[in-house]
Simulated scan of single mutants.
Amino acid sequence: MRAVTWQGKRRISVETVPDPTILEPTDAIVRITSTAICGSDLHLYELFGPFLDAGDVLGHEPMGEVVEVGKDVTTLAVGDRVVVPFNIACGHCFMCRAGLQSQCETTQVREYGSGAALFGYTKLYGQVPGGQAELLRVPLAEYNTVRVGTDLPDQRYLFLSDILPTAWQGVEYAGMPDGGTLAVMGLGPVGQLAARIGVYRGYRVLAVDPVPERREMADRHGVDTFDLTDDIVDRLIDLTDGRGADAVVDAVGLEAHGNPGVKFAQQTVGLLPDPVAQKVMDTAGMDRLAALYSAIDLVRRGGTVSISGVYAGNADLMPMKTLFDKQISLRSGQCNVRRWTDTLLPLVEDEADPFGVTDLVTHTAPLDDAPALYETFQKKEDGCVKVVLTP
């Protein structure tokens, strides 16, 4: 089969690799019909080389058709149309029953002290071959697939794999009061959906992004958008009676604009031999925290900062005085996809399309175009907000 593979920093290629096979009786094989490039894939493109091997198959936002099932699979059949959540969970352990599928005790990657295994996302999360491919092996397939209808196009369902539940969880974790003001830092795919979810729930939504095309997209969905300027926090506080937003969703993460010194350090680590770089990233890694610092400054006293962007540093400097003095709550974590799918599935099937999922994809292309589109997405060129590949 053809698959998108990591070959080195900023080097992606589409290669012919062996077809996946049933390895466990609970597996299924899915023929992929649509698969997206996620903003967190760009961290692999740029930073996480020490935890990748050349040839690793990328991708964790796929959907398609079941073409084979293991002998113990009884609730899934060949021909079923399914979305595949990005985290791999069992559905019955303590964590899964608590709605924390991203911490599944059956698939936790204990070698690295990480949570549940993920598709296509480095040794830290199990080095499981990903879904930017023609075929995908799905472990524990009865729980790690979401059956969907056949009448609507892929784009209505695809984002159930990651970014829609991630955005929903980000807003849930924000703990918003009715009619409150929600700020969103970053208008990439997750930020776009978090902002729209805020509007859907009746909040006033203020969103910040330096890219005009991203602001224009959010404007279409009732979001008040702002450029990323040096005084943006002060400006938004002025718009909230001098108090700040009730909650802020950080949808940016570890590669925020700013922090040039940390950016240089991140790039330097990537030049070290993998065993050394892994140790440095594990014990002394730092993130670019400009977006998170802004969120902490922007949120009102007693408010919540909800972190949806990916962070990986173990030596980050946090403003503990400010957090304590302002009585700020922090909520964060990998999305628990299956916790939210029963809520979200009827909403994506609603003909009114309340989250505007049909107005998110800016680039659709064959699998072979993936290398160029990784670069376009990473550089935020050509108005790129969301890329979908069609194997």
Rank of each mutant, 00 (worst) to 15 (best):
Lys380Asn: 10
Val299Ile: 00
Gly99Asp: 12
Ala28Phe: 06
Ala194Met: 02
Thr283Asp: 14
Ser161Met: 10
Val388Cys: 03
Ala290Leu: 03
Ile37Val: 14
Thr225Glu: 07
Asp359Ala: 01
Leu100Tyr: 09
Val83Arg: 08
Thr343Ile: 08
Gly115Cys: 10
Asp162Glu: 08
Asp41Pro: 00
Leu58Tyr: 00
Phe48Arg: 09
Gly39Cys: 02
Leu187Tyr: 07
Asp154Asn: 15
Leu187Lys: 06
Asp209Cys: 10
Ala291Asp: 04
Gly285Lys: 01
Thr16Gly: 13
Ala141Met: 07
Gln266Leu: 04
Gly170Trp: 04
Ala195Asp: 09
Asn314Leu: 08
Ala315Gly: 01
Gly180His: 00
Leu100Ala: 14
Thr122Ala: 04
Val205Leu: 11
Thr362Arg: 06
Ser332Trp: 12
Leu239Ile: 02
Glu134Leu: 09
Asp234Asn: 13
Leu228Ser: 05
Leu47Thr: 01
Thr358Val: 02
Pro20Ala: 10
Val146Ile: 13
Val66Phe: 07
Ser13Trp: 07
Asp238Lys: 14
Ala98Trp: 04
Gly59Glu: 05
Leu44Glu: 11
Cys93His: 02
Ala247Leu: 09
Leu100Trp: 10
Thr376Glu: 10
Lys326Ser: 03
Val148Gln: 07
Gly309Lys: 05
Leu344Asp: 03
Val211Gly: 02
Ile163Arg: 09
Leu44Val: 11
Asp56Thr: 10
Phe119Trp: 06
Val83Pro: 06
Asp154Gly: 15
Ser294Glu: 09
Gly8Arg: 06
Pro371Tyr: 11
Tyr125Arg: 14
Leu317His: 07
Thr166Cys: 14
Lys326Gly: 02
Gln103Trp: 12
Gly113Arg: 13
Gly180Leu: 00
Asp224Cys: 02
Leu193Arg: 05
Gln169Glu: 13
Glu349Leu: 09
Arg156Ala: 00
Asn144Gly: 01
Val184Lys: 06
Glu68Tyr: 08
Ile232Lys: 00
Pro346Leu: 15
Ile197Asn: 04
Glu142Pro: 09
Ser114Thr: 03
Gln132Lys: 08
Gln169Met: 05
Asp238Ile: 07
Val387Pro: 00
Gly202Arg: 04
Pro139Arg: 15
Ala256Pro: 01
Leu164Ile: 03
Leu367Met: 01
Glu351Asp: 15
Leu271Ile: 08
Val348Cys: 01
Pro20Thr: 09
His221Gly: 11
Glu142Lys: 10
Val305Arg: 11
Val310Tyr: 13
Gln155Cys: 09
Arg10Thr: 02
Val171Phe: 13
Gln267Arg: 09
Thr364Phe: 06
